[in-house]
Design a protein around this nucleic acid. Structure first.
Length: 602
RNA sequence: CGGGGUGUAGCGUAGCCCGGUAUCGCGCCUGCUUUGGGAGCAGGAGGUCGUCGGUUCAAAUCCGGCCACCCCGACCA
């Protein structure tokens, strides 16, 4: 037993230990937010490999570092942004009842063979060399596998499961920095339903959540109807950000409200009219005509009266395809029309073997081999057409496709062009490049059927689970944000995903007055809960600090220097607008709060 | 996979055509002076010239193979 005074001393000692611990923790937290300590390797010059602004600025601001083609390290400043985007996604996914889980990136190849997707992905999927394992490019198979094991009753649904996970895709050509890379983060969500109405509801919930996510990230985006591609399914939409760095083309007319990926976009371009006169088809000499334009120039044939014939293989079956004039075949539409896993144009030798002629002289009459035929709907019942004779150097004229060809079906196969009338109001279409930042799919039962994920309904009947699949590219949000919010000096972060909301620039912090005020403001702003990066570097010229601050692009820069301090003021600069305010030291916290609230809402 | 280009210090580059052991700027280290828009002076460190082979007395430079990266195209649930 201690004498009383010793107990008091001891308690006093513990009390002081706790205070010291708090001081230590606070001190450690603060010291990491100092530019003199924080690892931000900025670059003055633009690295040669970076072409687009977001890539250049991510490198220059020390957010990322390339390791290999399409593979990037996320450095501390960049990773802060990544985490913020993920947090916004988590909050909105949780908000629609999503449950976060985490699936393995390493998958048995076998499960991917059951859905035929080892073949469908082909070289895009990474394979492990010394085991029968693959690196997952997406997770429908694994989700369905879990559903198959545990979801057996209509009472078990609906479900929304999601994860934020690293995906691996062996892109043939990684490009544009993190926009097309071989390892990237994706939020992928999957809905399980016992009815098609349920799927519609879950799809709509995701649509709404996605809008909130992109709004909160400060992105300017639009939504387009999209192709379901080899994923299968009954409907899908893509969330797009307009950008010259984009790899997708979108056709739209704002006034009529039409917007679609060029892969599915259609127009009201008129069909080729049927002529009253309909003489027999007649072969004629065309020694120098290999392209539609040659026929138009040499023989004065109207472009649309030419039936361009192409041969495509759909899962190893050759098809003869007809298009009007120079209309461009849309391969996505063709793939959908033929319900094929893989399509490809025939090669020269194959053309010769199948038709008897080379490209440019192929047509419906005198084919060497009988081929299934498909034509664009513009050509429905068209006659008076010119097409190849299946002998090099000859064409037929006066072809009646109803009479002289054996076309199974007329479907929309053409790629729309800017200026054509849109399908809703017939207003002129615009076409622009965009980056896909999200995609929502009504998958249906493709995977549940393949993996036998069935449930019993209230009548005891067995059905495949009805699924939806919903993806967001995390790095694309960051890249698009920078693409949309930068100027000649650097990034202009929206406060929602900025690595720090506030930067403090100390001018000549060697001086006691400046340093003490800057430290005080630093502590006050952190005390208010803001994330603050304090440029406390000594021996660095003011110009250097300003340039760095503009490059890093925090929404607000508080400049503490003797120039204003002698009047009791500091300067508060808004990165995006460039506006500057001179405010009394005592008002800094309130000013920052007001400005950030304003910027957050903008 | 087809076409084009590049590889020289941490970054950006000159030299290559016409062979003689590598230029300049930025950055980095030391010292002094500077400090409101990428400071000055002085001194210093750092390079198997992507890699392997060939030609030559001698190769960053000429020839060939390979590798990596970038751009255009094809491809891209």
């Amino acid at each position: 037993m201690y004498p009383r005074c010793l107990i008091v001393d001891r308690m006093r000692g513990i009390f002081h230990d706790v205070i010291d611990l708090i001081r230590t923790l606070t001190h450690q937290r603060v010291i990491h937010m100092r530019l003199s300590q924080y690892f931000i390797p900025t670059l003055k010059e633009i690295p040669a490999e970076a072409v687009i602004p977001s890539h250049q600025l991510m490198l220059r601001s020390g957010m990322i570092r390339g390791l290999s083609s399409g593979i990037y390290s996320l450095l501390p400043l960049g990773y802060r942004v990544w985490k913020k985007v993920q947090q916004i996604i988590r909050e909105e996914m949780d908000g629609i009842g999503g449950m976060e889980l985490h699936l393995p990136a390493l998958n048995p190849k076998e499960i991917w063979e059951e859905t035929n997707r080892v073949e469908a992905f082909g070289d895009t999927m990474f394979h492990i060399k010394n085991r029968d394992l693959v690196l997952a490019p997406t997770h429908e198979e694994i989700i369905t596998h879990i559903a198959q094991a545990f979801v057996h009753s209509y009472r078990d649904m609906p479900q929304i499961w999601y994860q934020i996970q690293t995906k691996f895709r062996n892109e043939p050509r990684p490009k544009s920095g993190v926009i097309r890379s071989r390892q990237f983060l994706m939020k992928d969500a999957y809905s399980l339903d016992n009815s098609w109405e349920g799927l519609d509801e879950n799809y709509q919930k995701h649509y709404d959540a996605y809008c909130r996510i992109y709004d909160r990230c400060g992105l300017d985006y639009f939504v387009v109807g999209a192709s379901s591609g080899a994923m299968g399914g009954t409907g899908s939409q893509e969330f797009m950000v307009e950008s010259d760095a984009g790899e997708d083309l979108c056709a739209f007319n704002m006034e009529s409200g039409y917007a679609a990926n060029i892969e599915v976009a259609s127009s009201q371009i008129p069909a080729v009219a049927r002529l009253d006169e309909n003489p027999d088809a007649e072969k004629f000499d065309t020694p120098n005509a290999k392209a539609i334009d040659d026929l138009v120039e040499q023989f004065g044939i109207p472009e649309e009266r030419c039936a361009k014939a192409l041969v495509y293989f759909a899962d190893d079956v050759p098809w003869l395809i007809f298009m009007s004039g120079n209309d461009q075949l849309n391969e996505a539409k063709l793939q959908t029309a033929l319900k094929a896993n893989l399509i490809r144009p025939a090669q020269d030798e194959e053309l010769l073997a199948l038709t008897g002629a080379n490209a440019g002289s192929i047509g419906p009459i005198n084919l060497k081999t009988k081929l299934p035929q498909l034509a664009d709907r513009r050509l429905e019942h068209a006659n008076g057409m010119v097409s190849g004779a299946n002998v090099n150097g000859f064409h037929f004229k006066n072809i009646d496709l109803d009479r002289d060809a054996d076309i199974k079906e007329y479907v929309d196969l053409r790629t729309v062009l800017e200026g054509e009338p849109d399908p809703i109001k017939g207003l002129p279409l615009k076409v622009k490049k965009a980056i896909e930042v999200g995609h929502i799919f009504k998958l249906g039962t493709k995977y549940s059927e393949a993996l036998k994920a069935n449930f019993l309904d209230d009548k005891g009947e067995e059905h495949p689970i009805i699924m939806g699949s919903y993806g967001i590219g995390v790095e694309r949000i960051v890249a698009c944000h920078i693409e949309q919010r930068h100027d000649k000096d650097g990034i202009c972060w929206h406060p929602s995903i900025a690595p720090f909301q506030i930067q403090i620039t100390g001018i000549k912090v060697e001086g006691d007055n400046v340093r003490e005020h800057a430290e005080k403001i630093f502590a006050d702003l952190e005390g208010e809960g803001y994330e603050v990066l304090y440029d406390d570097r000594t021996g660095v010229s003011p110009g250097f600090k300003f340039k760095d601050a503009d490059l890093l692009g925090m929404p607000i820069n508080v400049i503490v220097g003797e120039k204003n301090l002698k009047d009791g003021n500091v300067e508060v600069k808004i990165r995006k607008s460039g506006d500057r305010k001179i405010v009394p030291v005592a008002d800094v916290v309130a000013t920052c709060r007001d400005l950030l609230d304003e910027l957050m809402a903008s």
